[in-house]
Design a protein around this nucleic acid. Sequence first.
DNA 1: GTGATAATTAGAACTATTCCAAGAAAAGGG
DNA 2: CCCTTTTCTTGGAATAGTTCTAATTATCAC
Lengths: 146, 146
Amino acid sequence: MPATVTLSPDNFAQALADSGLRNTPQREVIYSILLKKRDHPTADEVYARVKAELPTISLATVYNCLEALVNCNLVRAVNFEREPTRYCPNLHPHAHFHDETAGSTHDIDLPPGLLEQVRAILPPGYDASSIEISFRGRTAPEAATR
Amino acid sequence: MPATVTLSPDNFAQALADSGLRNTPQREVIYSILLKKRDHPTADEVYARVKAELPTISLATVYNCLEALVNCNLVRAVNFEREPTRYCPNLHPHAHFHDETAGSTHDIDLPPGLLEQVRAILPPGYDASSIEISFRGRTAPEAATR
DNA sequence: GTGATAATTAGAACTATTCCAAGAAAAGGG
DNA sequence: CCCTTTTCTTGGAATAGTTCTAATTATCAC
């Protein structure tokens, strides 16, 4: 299991403030939900989970909050082909593996230096602000629980 | 510029047949359009271009044909975030760079061994059928014409 | 407190894509 | 060759995920 980084509530508010965003109960709860179960939920899945705590929240707010968290770099948006966007609070550099059989998504830690090595393949004049490495495939039954 | 691989018409038909698919004028023309201008067009852009040659073709057919070409491994579908899918006839292993300013997509050749090195970061039990490496960022003005 | 700014909400709108049913084209068997 | 079967194309309707809009509510700075 990858190491988890847990922000103190103050750091959470600060991260938002650094991007000129306000802290709100909705944003706090949505972030805590992402931390609680790191299974790369979709916006719909987050919506279903957050309603237990904030029954009157709207789906639009879930999208807004997730976008806010992505914009202040607390959360990563993960896309596989044209499937719904998934959300990931893992701030370490990592790749994603999408299990086509189970429909599940797993973080894959990157060894030190690999990202730099990948960035180095860019020709002069290419300046990458983000690098994504993603796998599709299957996991062996006993690997699924790792 | 990456090397281009041009299939003879017979090989084209054979590639389809190998996947149990028929050759049709629509599929041929769409494939030739992808080869002619390798700028990673969307389905809509392919539709606009193919109408010059087959004025009565439908958008549904464009999607069907592109899917057929992807299924028999003549074409790769390329996705960036939630933008429309783009299509690429480059069969060499390569990464993609998406220029956020220009909206353009460029192939990045992979040095030998890199893909294997990336695959090697997968823990035991993870079997990847495809690996995607994609960059987002900007290209310097003089690099845009490379 | 008060005015300005930002966030939330419900629902409508949008976009890329897929589905559907009907007709056209091609392949294979006699 | 005709006939049958399968595959492909087509236009339009449907769908899914996401974004937009306008009104309301909350928060911030003074």
